[in-house]
């Protein structure tokens, strides 16, 4: 089955129905392995046991950015190639991306309370993720308030791409703003040199989260295709009546 064949929603639905059970099983297995490794991982010399929060926080942060990247590619698909599944993919990704961003924020905040002494500090990374979360919510609001799906998806595609250009600029600005305002006394997660005993569970957890994202995304795309069918049929029904 080639990529072009997937443009047909019916074929795509059939493929998703076949794939979903396998993906769900793989997700469960990856989480079982990842969680087992995470809980057997040694404590960090600086953070103590709270490093366990990182096994949730870091993959969630990666996926929050991955979600926007995915939506940007889908937006190109919508605007340039008018691929019929691109709209569906972008719309289905927004709530999932928002949920992972929220997970990143909440787990970060719960890690920050014991480590920094406050649930929220205007740290550059936290602030950038908060802005990302706000942008996800804005896109969801756009889908929520616009009735015509084609119209909403084209507007959303443009906003997603503008956001993709703007997010690095926002990140840069917030970094700059942060160094201006904050004393550099915060403990940071020891950057590239993470011990393998912590890195391995982290990567397995990241794989598990990625599989979870993929499974949920395909299922949400399936729902979205069905929702559009329902809409078409209801419009036909209204026409006939």
């Amino acid at each position: 089955m080639s990529f072009i064949d997937l443009a047909n929603p019916t074929r795509f639905l059939a493929l998703v129905q076949r794939l979903l059970p396998w993906l769900a099983a793989a997700t469960v297995l990856a989480f079982a392995a990842g969680l087992a490794m995470a809980f057997n991982a040694p404590d960090d010399y600086q953070q103590g046991a709270t490093v366990k929060i990182m096994f949730l926080h870091v993959p969630a942060a990666w996926l929050s950015m991955f979600g926007w990247a995915l939506m940007s590619m889908a937006a190109l698909g919508t605007l340039v190639w008018r691929h019929p599944l691109a709209d569906v993919a972008a719309k289905a990704a927004a709530p999932i991306g928002a949920a992972f961003t929220l997970m990143c924020l909440v787990t970060g905040s719960l890690w920050g309370r014991p480590m920094w002494g406050a649930f929220w500090v205007w740290d550059a990374r936290l602030t950038s993720v908060l802005v990302l979360f706000l942008m996800y919510l804005g896109l969801m609001a756009l889908y929520w308030t616009t009735e015509d799906p084609a119209r909403a998806s084209r507007a959303a595609a443009i906003l997603t791409l503008v956001g993709a250009i703007n997010l690095p600029v926002i990140k840069f600005s917030v970094d700059w703003w942060n160094t201006l305002h904050q004393p550099a006394s915060v403990i940071r997660l020891g950057a590239p040199a993470i011990h393998p005993a912590i890195l391995t569970p982290l990567l397995v957890m990241a794989l598990a989260f990625a599989l979870l994202f993929l499974t949920l995304h395909l299922a949400a795309m399936r729902n979205e295709i069905l929702r559009r069918r329902v809409r078409t049929l209801q419009l036909m029904k209204a026409d006939n009546a």
Binding site: T50, K52, I53, L56, M103, P114
Partner: peptide, 25 residues
């Protein structure tokens, strides 16, 4: 360790969000 509450809370939030997403789908 000393911050068990925060670790448990973080995992609880993550599980709750995941369950909410699965339930929504």
């Amino acid at each position: 360790g000393a911050h068990a509450d925060f670790i448990v809370a973080a995992y609880a939030v993550a599980i709750a969000l995941t369950v909410a997403l699965i339930a929504w789908v």
